[in-house]
Design a protein around this nucleic acid. Structure first.
Length: 495
DNA sequence: ATGTTC
């Protein structure tokens, strides 16, 4: 395709070259919102929340084609959305949001969730002051280095858990962890879904997925996942920051990880099945990577049951790492940690949203997009309800992270960005950056990085990502969420 | 994202 910007009549210009020969007009609705009119089988428009600078317009970047392709899915309602950190993904773009109506043949698509099912973030707020942290910093990093499992392959807080324990985790997520001593009862209050997605169906999780999962419960993994010691650098919304307990200089720990090999295997298994059964449901899609089945069907229920089990694994993962973090703080002579919030950014969920004033039960796919419920939402814990849901936005390594808050009447089914968004492939950035030099530069900037090979460090270099501050600014301007606090890293544990 | 190509 030749992608064309039609911001002002007579001022169109080409923005990229795709594969399908289709022309896409991108219409500037506001400086922070672009529209793709329905064409060639699109059932709804595409809507991209981005500044001109953040549009994914590199030559060969197919993210906007993917926004258009998602708009062709059966039962999709309102629009196919892209967040400001959108980039090219498997089937759906990363940073994509799509809602389907099961009552109108709406589908569920594994590509709309991603391989790392229930990948997400939690933020812990420490009792310790910045001065106390400084005095115990090396001891804390040493303890975390020992206690936080990470990297590819086996290893986790639970090491080799039994099949029985794994089954419990798949059914009850963080609830299992807390009930077995890996957390405090109050932790569950501040987890999305109170730590466990309902309707998990472990019977849909293959032997191979369970075997991979059994050996990794409570681990970070690799790539952009991290355990990070952070400090509140700036507060933008004083009332909300106060309610969240995020005063300037507050010490925090951010944990970003997902469902490891288990989620990956489930996605692989389910995609294989869906490609086979999809024609039987009379569904055709423009891209095999958009394989899908009706939400309200045998295979739709099977996928959602397996996905929910992986989601619970991801939540238990973050809960177990929270326990390990508390142990590290105790070992370093530092105080306790309180959970502010835990939220996924790769998930499909049934939620009630209003369409034309009417409540509808929709299947919301968020892939690289964070749920961002506004103030007063009954699904939020009482303590956070007046301000709205904390939206946790991890930055790239060595850069800031953000806490935003959900706003009333947000577009895109109450969703916001999930991070900075990659702009250079792992391969491309590894060619340009040397990991050893990067580690030195980060240390010089006051950021200690433990773990990670030079190669994996290079792959996560800040230059490979968009500027997270700019992404957050666009989220704010586009009305997706409001910035509350900016956090900067002091110490990082990476796989 | 991922026992980084079953």
């Amino acid at each position: 395709m030749a992608l064309v910007l039609a911001a002002e009549p007579g001022k169109r210009r080409s923005r990229g070259i795709g594969w399908d020969g289709i022309m896409i007009d991108l219409i500037e609705e506001t400086p922070y919102r672009w529209r793709i009119e329905p064409h060639d089988g699109m059932r709804v428009p595409g809507v991209v929340f981005a500044s001109r600078h953040l549009l994914p317009d590199a030559p060969g970047d197919l993210a906007l084609d993917q926004v258009a392709s998602v708009a062709m899915l059966p039962g999709i309602v309102q629009a196919s959305y892209a967040m400001p950190d959108v980039h090219w993904g498997y089937g759906f773009p990363i940073g994509g949001v799509a809602a389907t109506d099961p009552a109108a043949g709406g589908v569920v698509s594994p590509g709309g969730v991603g391989f790392d099912i229930s990948c997400g973030v939690r933020l812990l707020v420490a009792d310790a002051t910045r001065e106390q942290l400084s005095a115990h910093f090396e001891a804390l990093m040493d303890a975390a280095d020992t206690l936080i499992p990470r990297g590819v392959g086996p290893g986790g807080v639970l090491r080799d858990c039994s099949e029985q324990v794994l089954q419990e985790i798949l059914r009850t997520g963080s609830v299992y962890a807390v009930e077995h001593g890996y957390g405090q009862p109050g932790d569950l209050t501040f987890c999305e879904d109170h730590g466990a997605v309902a309707d998990a169906d472990p019977a849909q999780v293959s032997d191979r997925a369970r075997e991979r999962g059994r050996r990794q419960v409570g681990s970070i993994g690799s790539s952009n996942h991290f355990w990070e010691l952070q400090i509140v650098d700036r507060v933008l919304d004083r009332d909300t920051a106060e309610a969240y307990g995020l005063a300037p200089d507050t010490v925090c720990v951010m944990i970003h990880c997902g469902s490891r090999g288990l989620g990956h295997q489930i996605c692989t298994d389910q995609l294989r099945t869906m490609v086979e059964v999809m024609p039987g449901y009379g569904i055709t899609v423009p891209d095999q990577q958009l394989a899908c089945v009706p939400v309200d069907s045998e295979h739709g229920r099977r996928y959602l049951g397996a996905m929910a089990a992986a989601a619970n694994y991801g939540r238990a993962n973050r809960q177990l790492l929270t326990h390990a973090t508390r142990l590290a703080f105790a070992r370093a002579g530092l105080g306790d940690l309180r959970l502010l919030y835990d939220v996924s950014h790769n998930l499909a969920k049934m939620e009630t949203h209003h369409l034309g004033g009417e409540p509808r039960e929709l299947c919301i796919h968020r892939k690289g997009a964070t749920r961002a419920f506004g103030p007063g939402d009954p699904d939020l814990p009482e303590a956070l309800r007046p301000q709205g849901q904390p939206v946790l936005v991890p930055g790239s390594m060595g850069t800031a992270s953000w806490v935003l808050a959900g706003v009333p009447n947000a577009p895109a089914f109450a969703s916001a960005c999930h991070g900075a968004g990659r702009v250079l492939s792992r391969h491309a950035v590894a060619r340009r950056v040397k990991g050893t030099a990067l580690r030195h530069d980060l240390a010089h900037a006051g950021i200690t990085v433990r773990g990670a090979s030079p190669r994996s460090l290079a792959e996560e270099a800040p230059m490979a990502y968009k500027d997270v501050d700019e992404v957050v600014e666009v989220c704010h301007r586009a009305g997706l969420a409001r910035p509350v606090a900016r956090l900067i890293p002091l110490g990082v544990i990476k796989g």
